[in-house]
Amino acid sequence: MTLFLQLGFQGIALGLVYGLIALGFVIMFKGSHTFNFAHGQFVAIGAYVVLVLLPRMPYVLAFIGAVAITVGLALVVERLLIRGLIGRSVTVVVLATLGISTMLHNAVLMVWGVGSHDSVGPVGAGTTKVGSVVLPNSALATVAVSVVVLAAVAWFFQRTRHGLALRATASSQEAALAQGIDVGRMFALSWALAAFLAVTASIFLASFPRVVSPSIGDLALIAIPAIVIGGMDSLMGAVVGGLVVGLTQVLGSNYLSDIGGGRLHEVLPYVLMLLVLLVRPYGLFGSRSIERV
């Protein structure tokens, strides 16, 4: 039982990080109808910027600095490279984001090299014991911050006018325009929000004992099965999908280790993704009208 709780907690912590990343994907998809494959690189860049800033300033400032820089980068990419493609076929936009992803990845390699670096989590290697369950402080911080951030995002969408305007833009650009909403600014806002979530996820993806390395960008792509499972256009689905993937990976690495030569838990998120595609192509929480990508 202790082990189950232990694994479950780690799975939830990891799943929430995936959820933050998946949420970014979904917000961009809803806000600007772009499936942004370069999102993983925003996560990586966020982690590297925190790494660079940390020795020079307090943690909170380093985090804010990384958010500012990554959001700025996302806005530049959206405005210069994506905005002009709006209205073009989905394939064109997806290919463009793949190209941007490769570009950013190589930029990261050029600036920071191929090696791994230190961890950049907000807390160190310490742990907290609850009964017989050992909770790493890094995982506790992950859960606490993710829950707060997710609640803030929910509040933003449900209760603020900019959140409403973003939902309106996602629902119907024409009707949103008629309300005086600058749809272009909403595209930008959705990318900015996604980039903020990417940086938040990055500090936990590189929390002790995980480290900052170029592979973080690829690691973030596990959010793709998460959003397909949850539904491409569902904010709730992104978080649930992330949790499903995180729990599958961590619980599976223990309870499924005797099956498939110990590799089943590695492919299980993708198997679940295919199953969902077959049974509910719009995902567990998605809306039926979702276009095929």
């Binding site: 232990q6 961590v250 223990n254 280790s257 030569g261 110990g262």
Partner: peptide, 15 residues
Amino acid sequence: PTYTNADTDFTAQVN
């Protein structure tokens, strides 16, 4: 215990 390249959490292996 074994691991795969996708593993980033080693709770199961360590335990």
